[in-house]
Amino acid sequence: GFTKEQQRLGIPKDPRQWTETHVRDWVMWAVNEFSLKGVDFQKFCMNGAALCALGKDCFLELAPDFVGDILWEHLEILQKE
């Protein structure tokens, strides 16, 4: 899971503390893990605080249908851990 990747890359547990690099690493991991298609990494050029502050509607505009939902749900789980 993502926990191993977080440990390997030194990504903080709390997504709100992520840098732009951490956000990119997470999106890249999720794309590979969940076989997601059509993700534009440029749209995720922000730090974790900005990403978490978007709200669901704005977040879902960053990625194609269903893909955004998967990313959003995973981000929500990470914020609760």
Rank of each mutant, 00 (worst) to 15 (best):
D65Q: 12
A53E: 15
D69R: 10
L75I: 07
G48S: 01
K13P: 14
E76K: 11
E5D: 07
L51M: 09
F2K: 07
L62I: 11
P12T: 02
A50C: 09
L54I: 10
D57W: 04
V23D: 01
C52E: 03
L78R: 03
I11P: 04
I70Y: 08
K56S: 02
E73F: 06
F2L: 05
L51Y: 00
E20S: 12
A49H: 11
H74L: 07
M28E: 14
G38A: 07
D40G: 03
L71R: 00
L54H: 03
L71M: 08
E81D: 14
F34R: 06
I11V: 10
E5F: 10
W18H: 00
L62R: 09
M28N: 15
S35I: 03
A30C: 13
E61I: 02
P64L: 01
E5L: 09
T21N: 15
R24V: 11
D25Y: 13
Q42W: 03
D57K: 14
G1P: 06
I77C: 13
F44I: 05
G68I: 04
A53P: 00
F59E: 00
L36D: 02
L51Q: 01
A30G: 07
M28W: 09
C45R: 13
H22G: 03
D14W: 03
Q7P: 06
F44H: 01
L62N: 04
L36N: 02
S35L: 05
W26T: 00
P64M: 00
W26N: 01
F34K: 08
Q7K: 15
E61H: 10
G48L: 00
P12A: 04
A49P: 08
A53W: 03
T3G: 12
W18I: 00
G68D: 02
M46A: 03
W29E: 03
L78M: 09
A53I: 04
K4W: 07
I11T: 07
A63H: 10
V23E: 00
F59S: 01
N32V: 09
D57T: 11
G10Y: 05
D25I: 12
Q42I: 03
K4R: 10
Q17W: 08
G55M: 04
K56A: 04
G55L: 02
E20R: 10
I77E: 12
K37E: 15
W26A: 01
F34W: 12
R24A: 10
K56H: 12
F59L: 06
P15A: 05
W18L: 00
G1I: 10
E33V: 07
E73I: 03
Q17E: 15
D14A: 04
I11F: 08
E76R: 10
F34P: 01
P64F: 01
C58A: 15
C45Y: 12
L36I: 07
P12K: 04
N47Q: 06
F59A: 01
L60I: 09
G48P: 00
D69T: 09
E33T: 11
W72M: 05
V39W: 04
Q42K: 10
G10E: 11
E76C: 10
G55F: 00
V31A: 14
R24E: 06
W72F: 10
R24H: 15
L71E: 01
F66Y: 13
D69V: 10
D65F: 07
L62K: 07
K43C: 07
K13H: 12
F66Q: 15
F41N: 12
R16V: 11
T19P: 00
P12M: 02
F41L: 15
V23P: 00
N47H: 08
F2T: 07
L51A: 01
L78F: 05
I11Y: 07
E20Y: 07
V23Q: 01
V23Y: 00
G55N: 15
W72V: 01
E33P: 02
G38L: 04
V27E: 00
A63L: 13
D40I: 05
A50V: 10
Q6R: 12
K37A: 12
D40A: 06
N32R: 14
F66C: 12
P64H: 05
K56I: 02
N32Y: 05
Q7G: 11
I11N: 06
M46F: 13
E5I: 09
L9M: 11
E73M: 06
F59K: 01
H22Y: 03
W18R: 02
L62W: 04
D14L: 03
M46E: 00
L9T: 10
P64N: 06
C45A: 15
P12F: 03
N47T: 15
N32Q: 14
H22K: 00
V67F: 06
C52V: 11
K43M: 05
D65C: 11
G38K: 11
R16E: 13
L54N: 06
E61Y: 01
L54E: 03
K13Y: 06
R24I: 09
C45S: 14
K43F: 04
D25L: 14
Q17D: 14
Q6W: 09
E61K: 15
D40N: 08
V27I: 14
P12S: 06
K4A: 08
M28S: 14
N32K: 15
Q17P: 00
M28C: 13
T3W: 12
W72T: 00
P12R: 02
Q42T: 11
K56L: 03
L62D: 00
N32C: 09
R16F: 13
N47L: 01
E33S: 09
Q6H: 07
L54P: 02
V39E: 03
D65W: 05
G48Q: 01
R8H: 10
A49D: 12
P64G: 15
E61D: 13
C58V: 14
H22F: 00
E73S: 14
K13Q: 11
C58P: 11
K37H: 11
A50P: 02
W29N: 03
L36S: 02
E5M: 13
I77F: 13
S35P: 03
N47R: 07
L51K: 00
I77A: 14
P15F: 00
T3I: 14
W26I: 00
P64C: 04
A49S: 13
M28H: 12
T19W: 00
L60M: 11
Q17I: 09
A53L: 07
V27R: 01
F59C: 03
L71S: 02
G38C: 05
G38P: 08
E73A: 10
Q42V: 05
L51R: 02
G38Q: 07
L54S: 04
I70C: 10
P64A: 04
E5T: 09
L71N: 09
G55Q: 10
A49Y: 06
F34M: 05
D65E: 14
C58Q: 15
V39Q: 03
C52H: 04
Q79H: 08
D69G: 11
K13A: 12
D14S: 05
D65G: 14
E61C: 07
E73G: 10
V23S: 04
T3D: 15
Q7C: 06
H74R: 07
V39N: 02
A50D: 14
S35K: 13
D14Q: 05
W18V: 01
R8E: 10
I11A: 05
V39K: 04
S35M: 08
L54A: 05
G68A: 09
D65H: 10
I70T: 13
E33H: 13
R16K: 12
K4L: 10
D40Y: 03
D69P: 14
A63C: 14
F44S: 02
L9I: 08
P12N: 04
T19I: 02
W26E: 01
E76D: 13
A63Y: 06
Q17N: 13
D57N: 13
F41T: 14
E20V: 13
E61W: 01
A63T: 09
G10A: 11
C52M: 10
Q17R: 11
E5C: 09
L9D: 06
W18P: 01
P64R: 03
F41W: 10
I11G: 03
E33D: 06
K43E: 06
A50M: 13
V23M: 01
L36M: 05
E73K: 14
I77N: 15
G68Q: 02
G10M: 08
G48K: 01
G55D: 15
C52N: 04
H74P: 02
E5Y: 12
W29S: 05
T19G: 08
R16Y: 11
G10N: 08
A53Q: 10
D14E: 08
G38H: 14
D69K: 11
F41C: 12
P12L: 03
N32T: 12
T21L: 11
N32E: 12
G68V: 06
W29T: 04
F66M: 12
N32F: 05
E20Q: 13
